[in-house]
Design a protein around this nucleic acid. Sequence first.
DNA 1: TAGATTGTTAATCGATTAACAATC
DNA 2: TAGATTGTTAATCGATTAACAATC
Lengths: 203, 203
Amino acid sequence: MSPNRSVNRLLQYRTCLLKFQDLGFEKVFSYNLGEEAGVTPEQVRKDFSHFNIKGHKKGGYNINELLFTINNIFKSYKVQKIIVVGMGNIGTALTQFINFKNNNLTIVAGFDINPTALKKKFDIPVYPVNEMGNFIKANRIKIAVLAVPGPAAQEICNTLVTAGIKGILNFSPVILKTPNNVSVKNVNLIDELEGLIYSSVLS
Amino acid sequence: MSPNRSVNRLLQYRTCLLKFQDLGFEKVFSYNLGEEAGVTPEQVRKDFSHFNIKGHKKGGYNINELLFTINNIFKSYKVQKIIVVGMGNIGTALTQFINFKNNNLTIVAGFDINPTALKKKFDIPVYPVNEMGNFIKANRIKIAVLAVPGPAAQEICNTLVTAGIKGILNFSPVILKTPNNVSVKNVNLIDELEGLIYSSVLS
DNA sequence: TAGATTGTTAATCGATTAACAATC
DNA sequence: TAGATTGTTAATCGATTAACAATC
């Protein structure tokens, strides 16, 4: 497995490549990508080397080829079914954002303690949390977005893991305990803002 | 300035400490915090050392004291005024989440291209983007959350920077160019999910 | 006191950067 | 060809881990 940092940057390069493609470019050199992504050209080439991505000596990288290769690495050619747990403000917004934006990532269902109490209209089916385990197994869901209040997070996480979830995008302000074949990415909005304030105040 | 990683972990420790406090504990040892946060006890002590945080030899760390010290480092004792640009689903959800959750971080205003067209009721005043610069200057805002569509992001970012913003939490799928006295934290939800799929599929 | 824990210094590890041969 | 760029190997840098003296 390639280092995590490289994986993140590879996704950033993709964002840059899409922009270049949009501008009508056909190829890039490592220093173009580096400049756009805010890293050195050596970093770009080193990252590509990790994934065995080849360019053309002196000729740089063909943007379409490169995007194809990267999308292949991330299996972006096939639809990935995802569920959202916790259909509050954040959960609902994420669902709309992801389903509207992208066609390989699809939120197929939402879960909440008591969906009928929410009195909202959703774009996806929303079921009570106690049906979650069966749904995950029946649909072989591997990825879940967790957007429930802190105190509920660990218990729901356990249910997710038991049902077969392998990756969790966690918006709850809790550090989840999971077996190490389950990966967790934390997005703690308060912490991000605090970190920003920290670096802004001192500099 | 202390290393970025340490800053992030310090914020995580705070989350853990709040949990411990909630459970009625009064003190922790470095291995308690380490276990809870998923790092080694040495890492915890090293991080504290960066910020010159002192415990008690053999006696561990008093939770209240420690929380006070950490909150002090992040200036959490005083209200931080923040604005949100882009009052779509994500922007609106973030506003509600942050204002509801925490009382030192306050979203004081939102901005959108054409607020009246949104036909939504907001909990905060929402103004058109062209009033943004003046508002930032008049209220000495230093932190902004950016949640606008990709193509609009860089231009709005430039306006923010010119008006005096020093930190940007960026939800737009764009790598922003800013002068190096302005810090940017990117939250790219699609990338986070793709990264999760990458690690889940391969392991 | 003896055992346990902190705080720091030294050693290791991994990631980034520099250098350069290969080559188009 | 000469100059420019890739891809990889070596050197550097920084962050994590280990070791241990201080001490309660």
